[in-house]
Design a protein around this nucleic acid. Structure first.
Lengths: 337, 337
DNA sequence: CTGAAAGCGCTTACAG
DNA sequence: CTGAAAGCGCTTACAG
C-alpha cells in the first residue's frame, strides 16, 4: 500500500506538498503538482480512509433524521437501519439526531427542519410531507447547498442530494400480479391506498391500476379507495366498502394494517388479501393465513443507506446517485413459517 | 466520546495501564484494573475502531476464498459481494485472495486449502465440496482453531466459525408454493434438482417434496429428477424426461439454467416454470415470459457477509453467529421489467 | 509555494 | 506492575 510518505520520498518533497497537490487544496507549483499526480497514479496510491477518519472525527458532523409520523412498525424498521449505520460512523465523529413528528403535521415538520439546523445539523435526512411550506423550505436548502436526502418519500420536481425509496409504481404492479396469482384467475378486487398526499403512494396506486387498464389481469376491480389520515374514519371506511360490495373476495391494502386486519377478522366471508409494508401484525397474519402475501420495501436498508450516503459524501466527497431505488420483497407464508 | 486519555486522567494512571486493564492484556494491579473498568463503564467508554484499525493494519490479515466451481453468474454475484467487502477492509490491512476450482473437483479444492495456508492465509472462506477429504481437512482446521467460514454450502456435522447460506429447506417449499400459485391450481409438475452431493441441494429438494407429502398443493408430481455434474448429460436428461412425460406442464429447475431454458424453447407445448438462482439468462427469460418466477438467495450479500464476519472477528474479536441464514427472494416478471 | 510539526486514539515494544 | 514514547497515515494550522 502506497502512502503519502512513499510519494513524498519519490518526488523529493514533503508529505504536506503531496497532500496539497493530490487534494487540490492549495498553492502548489503546477509543475510539481503534475509530477506528484503522475507519481500517485503510477504508484497506485489510494488514500487510507482510516487515517483520514481519525483526523476528520474532530469535525463532528451532525445528521438530522426528520420523520413525518410518530412511529409504527415500518418506521421502527427504518430507524433500525439508521441506528445500525450510526454505530458504524460514530467513530468517525458523526452523530445522528432523530426528530419525530405528529402524523403528517407539516408545520411541525417544518419547525423540526429549522430546529435541526439551529442545533448545528450538517445534513438532513427527511421523509418529506407533501406541503408547499416543506417544498419551499427544501428548495431553499438546495439553493444554499445544504445537503438533503429524501427517505422513503419524495417531492415532485425537487431534486435533493439523493432520494431513497422503493419503486412505488412497480410495487403497485407487483401487487396486482400477486392478486392475480393468489386468486387462481377469478375474483373481485377492492384496493385501499393511503392519502395520495404522498407522491409515492399515488404512484403505487397508478402502477396497480395500470395492470387493470392494460388488461394484464383477469380479475375485476370493484373499487380503488383512498384512505384518510384518520384511523377511526379509515376503519369505518374499509368496513363499509366491504359491506356495500359483497362480491369482493380479494383486497389489496396499503395503510395501517391493524385496521384492515380487524375488518378481515370480523368479516363473514372469505377474502384473500395482499398487504403492503412490514409490521409485526402483518407478519402474524401471513403466518396464520389471514392474509396471503405481503410486499415489503426493505425499510431497514433504506434507513441504513440514507445515513451511509451522507457519510460517503462527507468523508470521501462522493456524490451519491440522485435516485436510489430499493427492490420490493415479496413475502408468502412459506417465507416466514 | 470518552477516550483512553480521559479514563487515564480520571484514574490518575497512564493510558498504557488503562489499555492493559481494559483489554486484559497484561499484568495490572487487580485493584487498579477494577477501578479502571468501573470508570470505563461509568464514562461510557467505547474503543475507537478507527484508531485501532490504523494500528492494526500492520498485521496484514489475509483471507482466502475457496470456491468449488470455475464460475458462473451465480458465483460472479458472490464474488461481487466479496469484492465490495474487500474494498471496505483494505484500509485495515486485510486482503482477500480468490482460489477458483474446476467444477466439483475435490482434490483440487483440497490442494487449494493447503495452498492458501502456505500462502499465509489467516482464515478461509469456502464453498465446501461434500467429500471425505474435505471434511477431514476442515475438521483438522477446526481443531487447530484456524477460522473457517462456510459460504453458500455446508457440511453436515461440521461446525465452522460461521456458516452462511440460504434456508434451503424453506426455499424448496417456496418453490412448491409458487408452482401452486402460477398454475392456478391444476397441473403436472416435474422437478429438477442438482446432484445431492451438496447438502443444501438435498435439503431444498426435501423442502420441495414436503409440500407434496403434506398435501399442501393440488398439483400432481410427475417426477423429481436428480441432475448430474455433466452439462451434456443433463441436457439430454431434461429433454428426455419432458418427452417421456407429455402431461408435464410445469417445471421447477435448480441447476445450470441455460440447459432448462434451451429445452423450454424447443418444446412444442406450453410449460410454466420456476427457476432457482440468479443468472443473466434467467432474468431475460423472466422478462420475456419464458419462465414465470425465480427464487434467489442473495448471493452478493452472502459473499459480503462472509468477509465481513471475519473482519469483525479479527478486528473486534467478535464471535459470529454459527449460522447466518439468508432470505430467499421471489422474483416475478413484474419485479424487473 | 513549501516544510516541519502537532495531533486524531490506539497499540506496542521498551525501560524502569 | 507501570509509564513514556514511537508510530499507524492523514490533515491542518503555522512558519518561512
Amino acid at each position: 500500500m502506497t502512502t503519502l510518505k512513499d510519494i513524498a520520498a519519490a518526488a523529493g518533497v514533503s508529505i504536506g506538498t503531496v497532500d496539497r497537490a493530490l487534494k487540490d487544496r492549495g498553492r502548489v507549483n503546477p509543475q510539481v503538482a503534475q509530477h506528484i499526480k503522475d507519481l500517485a497514479k503510477e504508484m497506485d496510491y489510494h488514500p487510507n480512509k482510516i487515517a483520514s477518519g481519525l483526523v476528520n472525527r474532530s469535525r463532528n458532523y451532525k445528521l438530522a433524521v426528520i420523520l413525518h409520523i410518530t412511529g409504527n412498525d415500518f418506521f421502527n424498521e427504518i430507524l433500525k437501519g439508521v441506528k445500525k449505520a450510526e454505530k458504524e460512523i460514530r467513530d468517525y465523529g458523526m452523530s445522528v439526531d432523530i426528530y419525530p413528528c405528529d402524523d403528517f403535521d407539516a408545520s411541525m415538520q417544518l419547525s423540526n427542519i429549522e430546529k435541526a439546523i439551529e442545533n448545528g445539523a450538517n445534513a438532513i435526512i427527511i421523509v418529506p410531507i407533501n406541503d408547499p411550506r416543506i417544498s419551499k423550505k427544501i428548495r431553499q436548502l438546495n439553493k444554499d447547498n445544504f445537503p438533503v436526502v429524501f427517505l422513503t418519500a419524495y417531492l415532485n420536481r425537487i431534486v435533493p442530494l439523493s432520494s431513497i425509496h422503493c419503486d412505488y409504481y412497480r410495487s403497485g404492479r407487483i401487487g396486482a400480479k400477486l392478486l392475480q396469482l393468489i386468486s387462481g384467475g377469478t375474483g373481485h378486487v377492492m384496493a385501499f391506498f393511503p392519502s395520495s398526499a404522498m407522491f409515492g403512494n399515488n404512484s403505487r396506486k397508478q402502477g396497480f391500476e395500470s395492470y387493470f387498464t392494460e388488461a394484464r389481469t383477469t380479475l375485476s376491480l370493484s373499487g380503488v379507495i383512498e384512505l384518510t389520515n384518520n384511523p377511526v374514519k379509515n376503519l369505518s371506511l374499509v368496513r363499509e366498502e366491504l359491506t356495500i360490495h359483497p362480491e369482493v373476495d380479494h383486497i389489496i391494502f396499503n395503510g395501517d394494517s391493524s385496521i384492515a386486519l380487524s375488518v378481515l377478522t370480523e368479516l363473514d366471508r372469505p377474502v384473500k388479501a395482499v398487504f403492503y409494508d412490514f409490521s409485526a401484525e402483518t407478519k402474524a397474519a401471513l403466518k396464520s393465513g389471514l392474509i396471503d402475501a405481503a410486499i415489503l420495501q426493505a425499510p431497514k436498508d433504506q434507513g441504513y443507506q440514507a445515513v451511509n450516503v451522507l457519510f460517503q459524501y462527507f468523508t470521501s466527497k462522493k456524490i451519491p446517485q440522485k435516485e436510489i431505488l430499493m427492490d420490493s420483497q415479496i413475502l408468502l407464508k412459506e417465507c416466514i413459517d
